[in-house]
Structures are given as structure tokens and as C-alpha cells.
Design a protein around this nucleic acid. Sequence first.
DNA 1: ATAATAAAGTCAGAGAAAGTCAAAGGTGAT
DNA 2: ATCACCTTTGACTTTCTCTGACTTTATTAT
Lengths: 152, 152
Amino acid sequence: MARLSDIIEDFIKDMIDETDGQVEIQRNELAGYFNCVPSQINYVIATRFNSERGYFVESKRGGGGHITISRMSTDKPYDYIMHIILSIGDEISKHSADINIDNVADLELISEEEKNLLKAAINDNSLKSVPVFLRDKVRADILKNMLMKTII
Amino acid sequence: MARLSDIIEDFIKDMIDETDGQVEIQRNELAGYFNCVPSQINYVIATRFNSERGYFVESKRGGGGHITISRMSTDKPYDYIMHIILSIGDEISKHSADINIDNVADLELISEEEKNLLKAAINDNSLKSVPVFLRDKVRADILKNMLMKTII
DNA sequence: ATAATAAAGTCAGAGAAAGTCAAAGGTGAT
DNA sequence: ATCACCTTTGACTTTCTCTGACTTTATTAT
């Protein structure tokens, strides 16, 4: 069941696709279009267009204010995946791992099949025998190791 | 005498049949339909739609939340993968896992990329934080879970 | 300069949905 | 009649979304 936030997310993503990786929106105008409070736009941006998901957001208040959302460049897939690997750290939650995997899949750096395998490898079903206090650590190791394999 | 859980199980299976292997349900709605507490739906899913039985379950909480149940593909070529999954048992060595992976790759049931990812996921580098006595068990869980995903 | 106006930002609370877990209740085999 | 196992229930928890009042910042008009 697609929630309003999902619809707004798709709308913004379509705009970004049409404008080559960057878009400038007016928060109030967008909120008016979708008949919601302006702060919902902030919510969508905070949860869907954050840096973990590969976006960069700038804004300006006051008259002529606006929000600019940029998709990170993927000119060099190797560098981008390496950057993600380096950013992962010693531990990662399933939720956060999923976001990273979706991210590289959205950028078409890996295929749908590879995405599915990555997600299957790090979900709690795969790790059910690992003591809970160790899971996020093992998850990080697996994810980094697998991502590394995609650029070798 | 069919218990309520059996009835719910059949109901969900019928939905899956009608929708080509995958269905999205609302836990509360379904519980309302069957006049039971919502957690009974969790019970049915945990006992009838687990991975041993060939299902994959994902879910999302909060507004717009839902539960998605996917059944493995019934295409003939994949019987072999199911066979391997069932033959793996509770534990598997890295060597033995590699042999199985090469096997399905040789039969072209998975691509080269998928083969590489499977191997990366279960090697000792991925599992370096897992106590040695648990490694072969975790390896088996990951391998089975990933192979299952290839036939969903 | 100052005031008015026009944006965007923050944050906490309400609401919506699913997850967990342990206790209670049935059922079937011995 | 008992024991082991399966099912049902419900109180409590966690996660995700939506809303609105209040704050901050930038521009424009006086």
C-alpha cells in the first residue's frame, strides 16, 4: 500500500531522472501539489534522499528559497562501491545494509539478481545461528566482502 | 478438524496461487477477516511459510505496513537447486559449499556473477567474526537462504 | 535601517501498522 | 490420565508516517 511519502519519493525521483541527476524544488509548492503539510516534504527528504542513499541535499530559506537534491555521480562505479565499502564500518544493521544494497542497485552498479543475493546473504534468516550481539558485525563483513567481489 | 491456522494457511496459499507466486497482505485486515488476534497471523507465517517450506517473507511496520510472502518458483529446472538445498543439512564446510556452488553454476542455473557472490558470502573472510565452531552452521544457513532466493 | 513578508527547518506528539513472547488452552498418543 | 506438542490469546514493544505549532533565515518594501 503506497503511502503518500512513497508517492512523493517517486515523484521527486522522476524529476531527478528527467533532469540529469539534480533537481530544485519549492517545498511549499510541492506540499500544495500533494495536499500535505510542508514538513512532510522534509520527512520524505530525510528518509529517502539522505546521504546513505546516495543523495546530497542543499537548501535556502527566505524569499526565493528552495531545496536542491542531487544524486551522487556514478562516473566511476569502482570508486563509488569502494566508497560504500569504506563507509560501512565494523557493524551494520539489516535495515542499513538493505539501504546500501538498494542504493547500488538503483545506480545499476549491480543487477536485480545480485541485489537479491546480497539481501538474502545478510538477512536475519541467514544469520539466525549467529549470536545476536555478533550479527551486525558478521553482516558488515559479508556485505563488504560481497561488494568487493562485484568490483574485482 | 481443521484448526483456524490451517484455514488461514489455505487462504493465503490460494491467494499466492492466484497472484503468481507472491502476495502482499495486511496483518490486521486478515486478522479481522478471520476474527482472530493479529499475532495469530504471525504464528501461521512462522509455522507454515518459513524457508524450510520454500517461502520468503518480508514486512514493513508503521503506516502503510504490510507483509509480503513469496513462494519459490515451480519451474522444473529449479528442482535441482531445491534438491541441493535439502541435501545441505545443518552444516557445510567451505570446500563442500564451493563444490555445490560450482555445480549449479556449471549447469547454468546461476550466472558467473551470482556464483562469485555466493562464494564471497560463505568464505572465511566473510565469516571471520563467527566463532569457528559455528562457522559451518552459519555457512549452511547463508548458502541455503541464498540458493532459495535464486528460485523465488 | 527597519519592518514585513516569504520561504525553509525542527521537533515532539498522534496515529498506523507489524513484531515479540510468555501464558493459557486444546489434542492426540501412550 | 498424563505428557508432549500444537494453537490461541493478549499485553507490551518497535517501527514508520503524518501533522502542526513554533523557529530561523533570506529578501523586499518603507
